[in-house]
Design a protein around this nucleic acid. Structure first.
Lengths: 169, 169
DNA sequence: ACAACTGCTTGTGTTTTGCAAGTGCTTGTA
DNA sequence: TACAAGCACTTGCAAAACACAAGCAGTTGT
């Protein structure tokens, strides 16, 4: 993964970082499910193997998408945090989710996140990314002093309610 | 690849389709380099193996992202065409390229495509996608009677000229 | 007639993956 | 102060995917 790149095409370079079946799922769980620790990430919906997870966390840390830090209150606990390049992958994950929910048999419930962030436009994505910055990089890493749009969680809740209402009818 | 999905998360389902090191590169060459035939695709910058290419073309055809048709004027020539779901991957490829050109040591020349389509906004992407529809699905598959924005090729040419000028200075 | 080209297929060795079990250490509980 | 439970991984092994090279049947151009 850290050898000489096959080409300097930006798409190829990106795929050499996260072009596999698991890397983006790990980031998805950190970004959208708020998982920060090994055990949490191990219990993904897809059942990632423990050796694969350990390897991906190592690679993601090495290439600067995650940082690993000890939990001061618990000697053997570890917390993984997103870096700015990883937070910058949010629009990409949204696109992947939007495409999958349109063309593949995806769960409507799980598709809400992609739809809300896709239809919410750049403002909602920036709000969401800024909350990730506050959580993972510290409150001072925010780029917008006040959310420029409606809250992501609020929009998801509304979309969930709308979905439930349409399912009843 | 066609077994029972690990989960119905739209991101996971997408990754089960194109979550590997080669699939999106094949689509990249068809979409951005205009390659349509096996030999053309075989000579990618990254040096894809012939058996891997054959497998990916088979899988992409089976899952509805490509269609395979014989060249009427040449008995052993084959032409691969994009389907609408594959054309719908353009914004995703643009995001991947934009991220890679920002955070990885990408070629500036090759990053132009991503930058132009990213900065050009939805209008330029729609124009580009509509040209793919005309080429791969037939002129009647266009969704916009007249291009709503400046031409993609023209914008790339301008960006290339600007890049060359900045390299001189 | 024949070399070159078409889209692949086959064989072989290496790398990656998936699954299960285990490891060393820390923590909470009786 | 035992001792089970929890923590983040590591190790071993079989199966699958991948990379590289060679080959193949049919078609085309000269």
């Amino acid at each position: 993964m850290a050898g000489t790149p096959r080409s300097h095409c930006p798409i190829n370079l990106s795929l050499e970082v996260f072009g596999d079946r698991w890397t983006l799922l790990v980031l998805r769980d950190i970004i959208f499910a708020g998982k920060r620790r090994y055990r949490e990430l191990l219990s993904s919906d897809e059942g990632i193997s423990t050796n694969i997870l350990a390897d991906r966390l190592k690679v993601l840390t090495e290439c600067g998408l995650l940082t690993r830090s000890d939990d001061p209150g618990h000697k053997q606990k570890v917390v993984y945090s997103l870096t700015e390049p990883a937070i910058a992958l949010v629009p990409l994950l949204v696109q992947i989710g939007a495409w999958g929910s349109r063309y593949l048999p995806a769960s409507e419930e799980l598709s809400l996140y992609a739809h809300v962030l896709d239809n919410g436009g750049p403002a909602m994505r920036e709000t969401f990314m800024d909350e990730l910055r506050a959580t993972h990089l510290g409150p001072s890493a925010r780029r917008h002093p006040t959310p420029p749009g409606p809250s992501f969680e609020q929009a998801v809740a509304e979309a969930r309610a709308a979905l439930a209402a349409s399912a009843v009818s």
